[in-house]
């Protein structure tokens, strides 16, 4: 009860919880598409690749304005994502190697720029730490407004392009045969995912970002077989675990926010994978007349009343 009271009255906790909720909501919904397309780890690469963008933006403008830094982060994040796709498409270097390479090389460049800034422009180590692990406690109202505005735009775009993005994720060749510009849509989706990552960096940081995109989706997927419900549920799980992580971390000393959020998400994933009806592991162990979900050729017993 005390916590609930604080959540409403305590400025810091309220701001952090709002930020975490936004991050979880936007990350969870857009992350769904990354996971469905077999691009789960793109978030990891984009998040790491944001560092040189942030440092570069600061170096060029001298500004600490969150919008300027986010623009920088989005630029290099998107560049890394495109380089990964180009490398994997045009050469024999496998996708995951391209991902690991771009991730670490961009991060290395960011580290060079950051250490250069620290030693020459007097920037503090704190900036780098905040970027790595997030610094949710430092969120201010203005940050939350920026997150809400950018995240809102990304979600509206996702809803407007709902059926196109669904087709892109399920069967891009067929979408192409309908005359839809699948490559453009692919670029757009990547941009939306980059936005989701960039607005979350200050809250959870680089290293844990991939979990924010993946965990809510994986949890939600176990409970429903419909894309719409899954994305909505992922957004809800993301927001709820975000708030839960913020509250739990505020209630105990020495419990950093980002990792706490990720651990909450991990718990929900584990619970979903065990308990969800039909797909859940315990459910599958219990019932004899259940089908393994991932085997595409499984013939389903037609006697079960699945039609409505």
């Amino acid at each position: 009860m005390d916590l609930l009271y604080e959540l409403v009255t305590d400025y810091t906790l309220r701001t952090v919880a709002l930020g975490a909720a936004l991050l979880g909501m936007v990350g969870g919904s857009l992350g769904s598409y990354a996971v469905l397309r077999g691009r789960s780890l793109i978030g990891d690469a984009v998040a790491h690749a944001a560092l040189p963008g942030i440092a570069g933006a600061f170096l060029l403008t001298g500004s600490m304005n969150p919008l300027v830094l986010m623009l920088g982060a989005a630029t290099t994040g998107l560049a890394a994502a495109l380089l990964v796709e180009t490398t994997a498409h045009t050469t024999r270097v496998p996708y995951d190697s391209a991902l690991a390479l771009m991730l670490s090389a961009f991060f290395g460049l960011g580290l060079v720029l950051m250490t250069y800034l620290q030693r020459h422009a007097g920037a503090s180590q704190a900036g780098l730490d905040a970027f790595l692990f997030g610094q949710a406690a430092a969120l201010v109202t203005r940050d939350v407004y920026v997150m809400a505005a950018l995240g809102g735009i990304a979600l509206v775009m996702m809803l407007l392009l709902w059926k196109e993005l669904k087709l892109l994720s399920f069967n891009p060749d067929f979408g192409h045969s309908l005359g839809l510009p699948m490559q453009l849509l692919n670029g757009l989706l990547t941009t939306l995912i980059v936005v989701a990552i960039v607005i979350g960096l200050q809250t959870v940081g680089v290293v844990l970002m991939s979990a924010v995109l993946i965990a809510p989706t994986v949890a939600a997927r176990q409970w429903t077989n419909r894309l719409g419900r899954m994305v909505a549920l992922a957004a809800g799980i993301g927001a709820a675990t975000g708030v839960a992580g913020a509250v739990v971390s505020a209630s105990m000393r020495n419990l950093p926010t980002g990792p706490t959020i990720v651990l909450c998400m991990g718990a929900v994933v584990a619970m979903s994978m065990l308990l969800a009806p039909e797909r859940g592991l315990l459910w599958r162990m219990g019932g004899p007349r259940t089908a393994a979900p991932s085997s595409s050729n499984s013939s389903f017993s037609t006697s079960s009343p699945a039609d409505s």
Binding site: F174, R229, S296
Partner: peptide, 15 residues
């Protein structure tokens, strides 16, 4: 395609 995609028969036809 990945048949584990979260969708139903009607939805695929609507595509």
């Amino acid at each position: 395609v990945d048949w584990d995609f979260p969708t139903n028969a009607l939805d695929v036809v609507l595509m």
